[in-house]
Amino acid sequence: MALSPSLGDDPVLEWHKSSHSSNDGPACVEVAAAPGTVLVRDSKDPRGPRLAFRSGAWAGFVRFAAAG
């Protein structure tokens, strides 16, 4: 995992908001896929920092979360 500064809305990235996020709650998460990496950001702060995960690590997390 790496913490990377946001460059604002990168037009190349397609961000997807979590179905568990709400517009009025504190837990609003968006993800975007980049080559070999999945980026995660707070949807309420799209210009803020992003977490970057290797694609394999993200896939493992999703499998774990889905099983839980």
Rank of each mutant, 00 (worst) to 15 (best):
residue 37 T to A: 06
residue 13 L to P: 00
residue 30 E to S: 02
residue 43 S to D: 14
residue 49 P to R: 05
residue 58 W to E: 04
residue 13 L to A: 06
residue 48 G to V: 03
residue 18 S to N: 13
residue 42 D to L: 12
residue 52 A to F: 02
residue 48 G to L: 10
residue 62 V to I: 14
residue 17 K to H: 03
residue 12 V to E: 14
residue 21 S to D: 08
residue 50 R to A: 05
residue 20 H to Q: 12
residue 33 A to G: 11
residue 20 H to C: 07
residue 15 W to K: 01
residue 59 A to E: 14
residue 39 L to C: 04
residue 21 S to W: 01
residue 57 A to E: 13
residue 24 D to W: 14
residue 56 G to M: 07
residue 50 R to I: 03
residue 13 L to R: 00
residue 37 T to N: 00
residue 12 V to C: 02
residue 35 P to Y: 03
residue 49 P to S: 09
residue 56 G to I: 03
residue 23 N to C: 04
residue 18 S to F: 14
residue 27 A to R: 11
residue 20 H to W: 14
residue 35 P to C: 14
residue 17 K to E: 03
residue 47 R to G: 15
residue 39 L to D: 08
residue 12 V to A: 13
residue 27 A to W: 01
residue 17 K to C: 04
residue 54 R to Y: 07
residue 20 H to R: 15
residue 28 C to V: 05
residue 13 L to W: 01
residue 30 E to Y: 00
residue 28 C to A: 12
residue 23 N to L: 02
residue 36 G to E: 05
residue 41 R to A: 00
residue 32 A to I: 07
residue 39 L to E: 03
residue 12 V to Q: 10
residue 56 G to S: 05
residue 46 P to I: 13
residue 24 D to N: 12
residue 19 S to Y: 13
residue 21 S to Y: 05
residue 29 V to N: 02
residue 45 D to I: 08
residue 45 D to S: 08
residue 39 L to M: 05
residue 35 P to W: 09
residue 20 H to N: 10
residue 47 R to A: 15
residue 28 C to T: 01
residue 54 R to S: 13
residue 29 V to A: 07
residue 58 W to K: 04
residue 49 P to M: 09
residue 26 P to H: 08
residue 17 K to W: 02
residue 51 L to V: 04
residue 53 F to A: 11
residue 23 N to S: 14
residue 61 F to V: 09
residue 53 F to S: 06
residue 15 W to V: 03
residue 15 W to G: 03
residue 50 R to V: 04
residue 33 A to M: 09
residue 54 R to N: 06
residue 28 C to F: 07
residue 54 R to H: 13
residue 22 S to A: 07
residue 40 V to R: 00
residue 26 P to S: 04
residue 29 V to E: 00
residue 35 P to A: 13
residue 57 A to P: 01
residue 51 L to N: 03
residue 12 V to D: 11
residue 14 E to M: 08
residue 60 G to H: 15
residue 19 S to V: 13
residue 17 K to Q: 10
residue 15 W to Q: 06
residue 54 R to C: 09
residue 29 V to H: 04
residue 38 V to Y: 03
residue 48 G to D: 02
residue 32 A to W: 00
residue 13 L to T: 08
residue 61 F to S: 08
residue 37 T to R: 02
residue 31 V to Q: 01
residue 35 P to E: 15
residue 38 V to M: 04
residue 55 S to N: 15
residue 59 A to R: 12
residue 57 A to V: 09
residue 56 G to L: 10
residue 31 V to A: 02
residue 59 A to F: 08
residue 38 V to Q: 01
residue 22 S to Q: 09
residue 60 G to A: 15
residue 15 W to C: 06
